[in-house]
Simulated scan of single mutants.
Amino acid sequence: MLWLAATPTPTPTPGLSAEQVTPGIEGFLVMALIAVVIVLLGIAMLRRVRRAQYRVDVREQLDAEEAAARGEGPTPGDPAKD
């Protein structure tokens, strides 16, 4: 147990100022740029998802019109038409 008592306690190293540990204006600008890019990517993704959904809706409507023109009605229990 003597070796535990002989361990010196560490002392903090002096010399770090607030300018050395903060990101500064460069860090702020990089983070702002990343935020803008993420927002623009989100908007582009939303537009693509909406466009794809509109295409699916139009295809379903055209299929229903073709089936009606052939005299076929929707079949009961069809998961695509429920």
Rank of each mutant, 00 (worst) to 15 (best):
G77P: 03
G15E: 10
A18P: 07
V49L: 12
E72M: 10
D78M: 06
A5E: 09
T13I: 10
L40K: 03
A5P: 00
V39D: 07
G71S: 09
E26V: 12
T22P: 00
E65K: 12
V36G: 01
E66W: 04
V36L: 15
G24N: 11
M31A: 14
V21D: 03
G27N: 04
G77D: 06
E66C: 06
I34L: 14
G73R: 09
V30C: 03
R51M: 03
L16R: 03
V56W: 02
E26A: 15
G42C: 09
R51L: 06
Q61E: 11
A35P: 01
E72P: 01
P12D: 05
L4E: 13
R50A: 05
A68R: 15
V37N: 09
A52I: 05
A68C: 05
L46N: 11
I43E: 09
L62T: 09
G71E: 13
E60I: 05
R50Y: 01
G73H: 01
V39H: 08
A64S: 15
A32C: 03
A80C: 06
I25F: 02
G15L: 08
G71A: 11
V58E: 14
I25T: 04
A67G: 06
P10D: 12
P79V: 06
M31V: 07
F28W: 13
A32L: 12
L46W: 01
G77M: 10
P76R: 09
V49T: 10
A32E: 12
P14I: 00
Q53I: 03
T13E: 11
